[in-house]
Write a protein that binds this DNA or RNA. Structure first.
Lengths: 188, 188
DNA sequence: TTTACAAACGAACGTTCGTTTGTATATGCT
DNA sequence: AGCATATACAAACGAACGTTCGTTTGTAAA
């Protein structure tokens, strides 16, 4: 008879789940413990504070998007191709890591100023990649939009960041089909 | 020496402000009282519970969007014209009532099941107006999109609902210009 | 078989939460 | 002028919060 034991990664994963579903302030350490079959106090064998957990989940989300953007950097030759790669990568991250993404998008604002600044900077850099791809696309003729790259990046990311609010991973729309619809809408 | 007196509307307005900024669970009744120069307990002269306040703010948001959709119903003759009216009305609501809108979009999920169901139904009806305008636009030729009305409504509303996350009312972009950019992006 | 350690418990800490109660005081109405 | 009502205070309630503490448990290495 072996007793179930947990690692810090288990706690962080559960935190991502509950923070995404109930919000950071709507989740208690006892809720979180219950999710793992533990008492709330037992979590402190794995983490130093509740905020520590929020930092871990949100920074993981930031890493995922950053990695996706770097992977798209050397894709294709035109701005449009790179933008499509960025969109495809973004959708992949959202679908594969829904909890971290939802926490990253909706709960990062509750971080203390130091960690929040880091996240804001990472988000700005990520958005800059979209601006750059769009700017290149407008310049090389692969994109024909009536708006500037800055506004274009905001509107494309508006669509992408809303996916977590309506997309059902068990629904009929697989990630590739989703990318195709979005790409058709923005580039068609 | 006259003592400052408040109405229920004052309390609801302050609740909208703080719920939008700090979230429902991140706002205490004492925070809310402090915002008005009152003790937390004094708020109970005006409301029956904290959730009562959330209901009031969120239902106000739902009403605003509903009224906007009804105003767009008999605008123009083509689907595209009606969609543009819906977009214009939506932007107007967001800009003029940022706090209620932010609370409506981000905090409605914390309502109890009864009130939440009502809000979900209102949101569905609102989205249906967008679907209908888009469907008409595809049929009458005023819109030329490669996607179906359902997905089109989701993507347009993704853009509109994200406005609260980045729009600065004191910035250089006035609401009319914002509508023009968005319309150019989705219909151009 | 002993030693060591990480994981979890269970009780308790001080604080904050939403809310209730009783009381005082202004204001509007007659 | 006097009274009812609305508004706000001040104190307090029990529950829940994040966290700490001393201790127990199970497992693995020596």
């Amino acid at each position: 008879m072996t007793t179930t034991r947990h690692s810090r990664a288990d706690v962080v994963a559960a935190a991502g789940r509950l923070f995404a579903e109930r919000g950071y302030h709507g989740t208690s350490m006892r809720d979180l413990g219950g999710e793992l079959g533990l008492l709330g106090s037992s979590l402190y064998s794995h983490v130093t504070s509740k905020e520590d957990l929020l930092v871990a989940v949100v920074e993981r989300g930031a890493e995922l998007f950053d990695a996706s953007a770097r992977a798209a950097e050397d894709v294709g030759t035109s701005g449009a191709e790179r933008l499509r790669a960025l969109i495809s990568g973004h959708v992949g991250v959202v679908v594969a890591h829904l909890d971290e993404v939802r926490t990253f998008l909706n709960e990062a604002r509750f971080l203390d100023i130091v960690h929040r600044s880091r996240i804001v900077a990472a988000r700005d850099a990520y958005e800059a990649e979209f601006r750059r791809a769009i700017g290149d696309g407008l310049a090389d003729g692969s994109l024909d939009w009536p708006i500037d790259p800055k506004m274009g990046a905001i509107l494309v990311l508006s669509i992408l960041n809303a996916i977590e609010r309506w997309y059902d991973p068990d629904g009929p729309l697989d990630p590739a089909a989703l990318v195709q619809r979005i790409w058709g809408f923005v580039a068609g």
